[in-house]
Amino acid sequence: MKIKRELLYKNTIETERYCQTVWRRFCRHRLALAGLGALAVICLASLLAPLIAPYDPEEIVGPFGAAPSLKFLLGTDQIGRDMLSRLLYATRVSLMVGALSTLISTAIGVVLGLMGGYFGGWLDIAIMRFTDMVMSFPYILLVLVAAAIFEPGLWSIILILGLVDWPGIARLVRGNVLSLRETNFVKSSIVAGMPSRYILFSEILPNTVAPILVYATSVMALSMLDEASLSFLGMGVQPPAASLGNMLGSAQSLTILTRQPWLWIPPGLLIVVLVVAINFVGDALRDALDPSSVMNVNSLSGEEQNECE
């Protein structure tokens, strides 16, 4: 019992040191820190939308196309709905689509990649050929066809994007599993007679989490762009529900573009900020979780190691 407690304490200390090392390396990316702060503010504002939104996003509360004022900070749209309230709820929709579709595609890709890479043989061949078949279709065409087949809506978009974004993650996980399968700690577990489920999810998967997290950030940014594109084309979230894409889609006329910029600049700018911030965070995670970079953290100066503490 005493030996088990000592091993548990040692593993806890090593985990804390590893997390501190990763955080130090992450903090060296100033743009990533700025992006993380922007994401935190935007996520908090969207979560608190029912509390901080001044009006109901679907209710007509003012004159048509009113310019920004003290009463309507971002003005009103063509039918008199408050733009700030709609922007808050639209951001919630974009974040929900990005997070849930990424979760679905990551789960599918991880399971298929683990099974194909570990068991190999006919199962690996079948999974990889199916993956190649899905990737052979033009991505945007596949999304548009799927969106045209199913009824437009929030949950339809989440499922469509989640079911078409998994091949890249599956190939990434499979490649890592093929490498980890030849390591000594996996071979020793096999020789010891450990079940495959334990080896996959307790030995191999924890050592594959880092590249999965990095890749998932790019998938999330791409999913948010796809949702905005589909909603812009009228195949995504349907009015009167607010979405960054359909807010831009309702501001296509030349008159609005030239005379009512408050109808398209805020949602367009918010899309750019979200995607750029997520990509900055993903780049920093890639560097921070790189094993060679983490091993060299001891070479940092004391000032660099303490800059985020």
Rank of each mutant, 00 (worst) to 15 (best):
A228F: 00
H29Q: 12
L230F: 06
M135A: 03
N246A: 06
G121D: 03
A34K: 06
K4M: 13
R5I: 13
L269K: 10
N298G: 10
E151H: 10
A49S: 07
R259Y: 09
N11R: 11
V173W: 04
Q305T: 11
V145E: 01
G117V: 02
A241T: 15
P240F: 05
D82M: 07
L39N: 06
W262M: 06
A192P: 10
R24M: 12
D124H: 11
F64N: 13
V93E: 07
K2G: 08
S231G: 10
Y198W: 14
L33F: 15
L142F: 01
D287W: 06
E303P: 00
I169W: 03
G245H: 02
L84I: 11
T21W: 09
R129D: 12
Q78L: 14
L31W: 12
G120Y: 02
Q260F: 15
D283W: 07
R5A: 15
E59A: 12
Q252N: 12
T102Q: 02
V164L: 00
F137L: 14
L161I: 05
E16Q: 15
T217M: 08
L39E: 07
I52M: 07
A147I: 10
L100F: 09
A221D: 00
E227K: 13
L36A: 07
A99D: 09
Y55M: 06
T106V: 05
I108P: 01
I104F: 03
L161K: 03
S69A: 07
L141S: 10
L159Y: 07
A192T: 09
S136T: 15
Y139S: 13
Q260H: 13
I149F: 08
T255Q: 09
A107R: 04
V219E: 06
L225I: 13
Y18H: 14
Y139I: 11
S202C: 15
V164N: 00
G35P: 09
S189H: 14
D287R: 08
A32W: 08
G98R: 05
G249C: 08
R81N: 09
V134H: 00
L8K: 14
A228G: 05
L154E: 01
M220Q: 05
A210Q: 06
T76G: 07
G162P: 00
D287I: 01
L161Y: 02
V276T: 08
T102D: 02
L142Q: 03
L95C: 04
V275W: 00
Y9K: 11
N207R: 10
R181P: 00
S136A: 15
A99K: 05
G116Y: 01
A34Y: 10
I160K: 00
L144T: 10
L84M: 14
A107N: 08
Q305V: 13
C19H: 12
V97W: 01
V143C: 00
L205Q: 11
S85I: 06
L95D: 04
G302Y: 13
L142Y: 02
G37Y: 08
